[in-house]
């Protein structure tokens, strides 16, 4: 719980330090990309801090490449 609060604080600092100047300079596109990414990162971090099981991207990779991997393993063994 404290972790999540800390993450939010850090994110708020990041946002004010980084996004507001972008907005002021009129870089709307940068601002949008930044905000979306930050939101994504924040939700991931908070999920992590609350010990929610996040699927590992490695699992997807392993799923996609499974036939190839198996083939490699069997031919080289």
């Amino acid at each position: 719980m404290w972790m999540s609060v800390l993450i939010v604080v850090v994110v708020v600092v990041m946002f004010t330090a980084e996004a507001i100047p972008l907005l002021k300079k009129g870089n709307i596109k940068e601002f949008r990309v930044f905000s979306v990414l930050l939101l994504f990162g924040t939700s991931l971090s908070i999920a992590l801090s609350l010990k929610v099981a996040i699927p590992s991207p490695i699992d997807w990779i392993e799923f996609i490449y499974k036939p190839l991997t198996d083939w490699l393993q069997t031919t080289l063994k």
Binding site: F34, L37, F40, G41, L44, S45
Partner: peptide, 11 residues
Amino acid sequence: PLTLPLGMIIV
């Protein structure tokens, strides 16, 4: 500007 959020994601 992308470094901080992406950095967060790689952590």
